[in-house]
Amino acid sequence: MKEIRDKARELMKGYCRVCKVCDGKVCAGEVPGMGGLGTGASFKANLEALEGFRLNMRLLHDASEPDTSTSLLGIDMSMPVMAAPIGGVSFNMGGGVSEEDYADAVVSGCKAAGVIGCTGDGVPPLLHESGFAAIEKNGGHGIPFIKPWEGAELDEKLEKGRKTGCSIFGMDVDAAGLITLRQMGRPVSPKPLSELKKIIDKVHGWDAKFIIKGVMTPDEAELAVEAGADAIIVSNHGGRVLDHTPGTAEALPDVAEKVHGKITILVDGGIRTGADVLKMLALGADGVLIGRPVAVAAVGGLQEGVEQYLATIKAQLSGAMVLTGCKDIASIDSNVLF
């Protein structure tokens, strides 16, 4: 991983310093780039919120070989981890690798590691086209995320995504405030319940599932359930759209309490290690998404880099489960937390 990170640092040319701890402090306000918006408070809050939780160490048990496998949204996975949807290698990551190679590294690397990768969307078209191509190459094993576009663009991209053979679609409604897209004549906007229902019904008509990314409050989690979504992602878009939000680990417990058992609950934001994965599961998530570290691994080592990073996370998660007495994913609950 050190070689992969060193190579990524070289290729990312200051767009990301590949810091020892990816906490948003050095890159605050660097958008474009990999930083958080404004003061970077939301990005930093993700890390700080997770750091605020401690783990109960337990060793008087027989959970010496924990099972990290799980099933999420009908997909069997080696662990409850996905790659978050990130695109824009050329303007956010220095352009050291092509958009096509980056998307392929993430999607193919995740498949090889027994998990699933998500792909991004935006302007120019190369962003979603590269993601769609990677998913199609992998037999539909990937989740295309489509921004909450206004007008015909949304339906057009859903239809194009369908041709990849994927069984799950996502929408990052947390991108609704990206003013730069509107300035480019490609506006995105929040989605009311009535519109969401129509979108989800369309996807369900294809026998596919639908994820809403960007749910940070219990009331909107309930709205997602009412709209018929199959999953939500508790996410503040990596701290890149609204300054001064809470960290996702702060928001997660209240959301989980409100909709547990009604919808699959996923979370991203500040997850850097297997112990962080364990914490998020203990706080009520069914699975997690990891963004920037996967992007760094993809830039620094392409598919091999992604595979190596995910292997590291899996080993860390397994070790943390041994040390907290969790024999499998289902046994992880709030008792893990101090």
Rank of each mutant, 00 (worst) to 15 (best):
L310R: 00
V188I: 09
Y309G: 01
R9M: 07
Q316C: 11
C166N: 10
D276F: 04
I329H: 01
L283K: 07
M280Y: 10
D62G: 05
V18L: 02
I263S: 01
A315S: 14
D67L: 12
R5N: 13
I86E: 01
K20W: 06
A311Q: 12
G120S: 13
N335R: 11
I211K: 03
K137V: 05
G238H: 00
A84N: 13
C118A: 12
T273H: 11
L50A: 01
C19I: 07
I199R: 06
V277G: 03
K198H: 10
P144T: 04
W149H: 06
T312S: 11
L302C: 14
L126D: 10
V277M: 04
K213Q: 14
A256G: 07
I168E: 02
C326I: 10
R272M: 15
N46W: 00
D172R: 00
L323D: 04
A152H: 09
R182S: 15
K163Y: 07
D23I: 03
V115E: 03
K213E: 14
I233P: 06
V299A: 08
D254M: 11
H260I: 05
G165Q: 11
K13H: 15
D76W: 02
I146E: 00
G185D: 03
A113K: 00
H204E: 02
C326W: 03
G33S: 07
P85A: 04
L55F: 08
V288Y: 06
K44I: 14
D243I: 03
E153M: 06
